[in-house]
C-alpha cells in the first residue's frame, strides 16, 4: 500500500512538474512592431525594440510607445496572446510644428529661387519670344532680298515696258518690305539688349536680397531619450545593458 502510494505520489509529482513547465511555456507570445517611420524609437513597456524585430513576451497587455523625429509621439495598448505572434502597425502623423516648418521652408525656397533666378528666367522667356520674331523676320528679309534682286534684274533687262514697270514696282515693294523686316530684326535685338541690361541690374539687387532671407530652422527635443539600465531581453542573455536612447 505504501509502495503504491509512493509510486502514485511520484507519478503525480512528475506530472505536476511537467504540467507547470508546459503552462509556463504556453504563457508566452511574440510581437513585432512596424511604425510609419522606420527610424522610430520604439518601446514595448519598458523594453526598447527595433523596427520589425520579433520579440518574445509574456502574455498580457503592453503599452507601445513610439516616437520618431518630426512625428508625434504615439502610444498604443496591445494585448499579447498565448503562442501568438502579434504584428502591430503604428501610424505616426507629422507634428503640427514640423508641418508649419515645412511650409515656411517651402516658402523660403520659392522666395529665394524667385529672387535669384526669377528676373533672368523671365528675361529668357522674353528673349526667346523676341528671338522667334527675329528669326521669322530674318527669314522674311532673306526672301524679300532674293525677290528684290530678281525683280531688279528683270526690271533692268526686260524688253517689254509693261514688264519693266511691273518689275520696278515689284522691286520697290520688295525693297520696302525687306527694309521693314530688317528694322524688325534690329528692333528685336535692341529690345533684347535693353532687356538684358535691365535684367542684370534688377537681378543684382534681387540676388543680394535673396542672401538676406532668413532660412527657417526646425528644432525638436527627442521625446524618448533617456538613460536606461536593465536586462537585455532581446538577446535572451542575462547581461545587463546600460544605454542612452537618442
Amino acid at each position: 500500500m505504501s509502495i503504491r502510494l509512493f509510486v502514485f505520489n511520484v507519478l503525480f509529482l512528475i506530472g505536476g512538474i511537467s504540467y507547470s513547465q508546459e503552462m509556463a511555456d504556453s504563457s508566452k507570445g511574440k510581437m513585432r512592431v512596424y511604425t510609419q517611420s522606420s527610424a522610430a524609437v520604439i518601446y514595448v513597456g519598458e523594453l526598447k525594440v527595433k523596427y520589425g524585430e520579433i520579440i518574445e513576451l509574456d502574455t498580457g497587455q503592453y503599452v507601445i510607445t513610439a516616437w520618431a523625429p518630426k512625428r508625434k509621439k504615439v502610444r498604443e495598448l496591445v494585448r499579447v496572446g498565448n503562442k501568438y505572434t502579434k504584428t502591430v502597425r503604428i501610424k505616426m502623423p507629422l507634428t503640427k510644428e514640423y508641418k508649419h516648418y515645412r511650409n515656411k521652408k517651402a516658402l523660403y525656397e520659392v522666395k529665394k529661387t524667385t529672387l535669384r533666378y526669377g528676373p533672368m528666367t523671365a528675361f529668357i522667356f522674353y528673349a526667346a519670344n523676341e528671338m522667334s520674331v527675329i528669326s521669322k523676320s530674318n527669314e522674311n528679309a532673306d526672301q524679300f532680298l532674293t525677290l528684290a534682286n530678281e525683280q531688279k534684274s528683270k526690271a533692268e533687262n526686260s524688253f517689254w515696258p509693261s514688264d519693266i514697270e511691273a518689275n520696278r514696282k515689284g522691286f520697290a515693294i520688295s525693297k520696302l518690305s525687306y527694309e521693314n523686316e530688317i528694322e524688325k530684326v534690329n528692333d528685336g535685338w535692341q529690345k533684347i539688349y535693353a532687356g538684358l541690361a535691365a535684367t542684370i541690374v534688377v537681378n543684382y539687387f534681387t540676388w543680394r536680397l535673396s542672401k538676406k532671407l532668413k532660412r527657417p530652422n526646425y528644432d525638436e527635443k527627442p521625446q524618448l531619450t533617456k538613460l536606461f539600465i536593465g536586462p537585455d531581453m532581446q538577446s535572451r542573455t542575462t547581461q545587463l545593458t546600460i544605454g542612452f536612447n537618442f
Binding site: 532680298l145 528684290a148 526690271a155 533692268e156 526686260s158 519693266i164 522691286f171 530688317i182 535685338w189
Partner: peptide, 17 residues
C-alpha cells in the same frame, strides 16, 4: 545686327526702255 544690303541699291534703266 542685320545690315541693309539694299541700302545703296537703285534701279538702273533697261536698255530696251
Amino acid at each position: 545686327k542685320k545690315e541693309n544690303e539694299l541700302n545703296d541699291v537703285f534701279l538702273s534703266n533697261s536698255p530696251y526702255e
